[in-house]
Amino acid sequence: MILGLYNYWIVVVLMMIGFYIVIAHGNLVKKIIGLTIFQTSVFIFYISIAKVNGGTAPIIAEGIQLYSNPLPHVLILTAIVVGIATTAVGLALAVRIKEAYGSIEEDEIQKKDNLDC
């Protein structure tokens, strides 16, 4: 059944929503929100790959034979914390841009830059 691929489609839809926000919105904070949605879709992609039907969480306990795949969990766990740290750097850049240009709308920043030239 081709419907067995639905997890990837959800990921693609979420990823494209994030992508659209990143390219179509001019506000820098909104772009960062779009990036976090994009990022979360990659997290969901990895975690859905790790799922095994009938498996349980990868914590060894007696009487359980089938576990979900722990490796993607490890990668994503660290990626989430790294993601928030890098998002913070992005927001810090937006704050500095606001202080330098008085705006975080791309158009207005571009206009000011053109005037300076």
């Binding site: 997290f43 969901i44 975690i47 799922k51 095994v52 498996g55 969480a57 576990y67 969990h73 994503i76």
Partner: peptide, 10 residues
């Protein structure tokens, strides 16, 4: 979602 997909740590 992650709990539902067994990724408790995540």
């Amino acid at each position: 979602f992650f709990v539902a997909m067994d990724a408790v740590d995540v």
